[in-house]
Amino acid sequence: LDITFHVDGKNIHVHGASEEVVRIIEELIKNNARAEEIKETLERLLR
C-alpha cells in the first residue's frame, strides 16, 4: 500500500488511501501529531 500525504498551508492532500484513512490522517495532523505517530497509526490500521 502506497500512501502519500503532504501539508500545504492548511490543506492536507492524501493520495492512495480510503476516505476513512484520509479522515484519520487529517485528524492526526490537526492534532499536531508527529510524522512518526501518523506512520505508526497507519501501520496499525493497515495490518
Results as ranks from 00 to 15, higher is better:
residue 8 D to E: 09
residue 25 I to S: 00
residue 1 L to I: 15
residue 35 A to C: 08
residue 17 A to Q: 01
residue 20 E to R: 07
residue 28 L to H: 04
residue 38 I to H: 01
residue 37 E to Y: 11
residue 24 I to M: 11
residue 28 L to C: 02
residue 34 R to C: 07
residue 38 I to L: 08
residue 22 V to C: 02
residue 16 G to T: 03
residue 10 K to D: 14
residue 47 R to F: 04
residue 27 E to V: 08
residue 35 A to Q: 07
residue 9 G to P: 00
residue 34 R to A: 13
residue 23 R to V: 08
residue 18 S to E: 03
residue 28 L to P: 00
residue 41 T to E: 12
residue 6 H to E: 15
residue 42 L to T: 02
residue 24 I to E: 08
residue 38 I to Y: 03
residue 7 V to P: 08
residue 25 I to F: 04
residue 42 L to C: 03
residue 5 F to Q: 07
residue 20 E to T: 09
residue 5 F to M: 13
residue 19 E to W: 10
residue 31 N to K: 11
residue 40 E to D: 13
residue 8 D to S: 03
residue 34 R to G: 13
residue 24 I to S: 06
residue 18 S to R: 04
residue 40 E to Q: 12
residue 44 R to Y: 07
residue 6 H to I: 15
residue 45 L to I: 11
residue 31 N to G: 11
residue 6 H to P: 15
residue 24 I to G: 04
residue 33 A to N: 06
residue 39 K to T: 14
residue 44 R to N: 13
residue 40 E to P: 02
residue 40 E to F: 04
residue 22 V to H: 04
residue 40 E to A: 11
residue 20 E to N: 07
residue 26 E to G: 11
residue 15 H to G: 04
residue 29 I to Q: 03
residue 27 E to M: 11
residue 15 H to K: 11
residue 40 E to L: 12
residue 36 E to Q: 12
residue 44 R to G: 10
residue 33 A to V: 10
residue 7 V to L: 03
residue 20 E to L: 08
residue 20 E to D: 11
residue 21 V to C: 04
residue 28 L to K: 08
residue 19 E to T: 13
residue 40 E to I: 13
residue 15 H to S: 07
residue 44 R to P: 04
residue 9 G to R: 00
residue 20 E to H: 10
residue 32 N to V: 05
residue 5 F to Y: 03
residue 29 I to S: 02
residue 15 H to W: 07
residue 13 H to E: 07
residue 16 G to W: 03
residue 27 E to A: 13
residue 21 V to Y: 03
residue 46 L to T: 10
residue 45 L to Y: 05
residue 32 N to C: 04
residue 43 E to N: 14
residue 3 I to R: 05
residue 14 V to T: 02
residue 30 K to Y: 11
residue 28 L to T: 01
residue 4 T to C: 10
residue 42 L to Y: 02
residue 44 R to C: 06
residue 14 V to S: 01
residue 10 K to F: 14
residue 17 A to M: 04
residue 22 V to P: 00
residue 28 L to D: 01
residue 35 A to G: 10
residue 30 K to P: 00
residue 38 I to A: 02
residue 8 D to T: 01
residue 34 R to E: 09
residue 32 N to T: 06
residue 5 F to L: 15
residue 26 E to R: 11
residue 26 E to I: 14
residue 46 L to D: 06
residue 44 R to T: 12
residue 32 N to G: 14
residue 15 H to E: 05
residue 8 D to Q: 05
residue 11 N to E: 15
residue 17 A to R: 01
residue 38 I to K: 01
residue 39 K to M: 15
residue 2 D to V: 05
residue 15 H to Y: 06
residue 46 L to F: 07
residue 25 I to Q: 00
residue 10 K to H: 11
residue 8 D to A: 04
residue 16 G to M: 05
residue 40 E to Y: 05
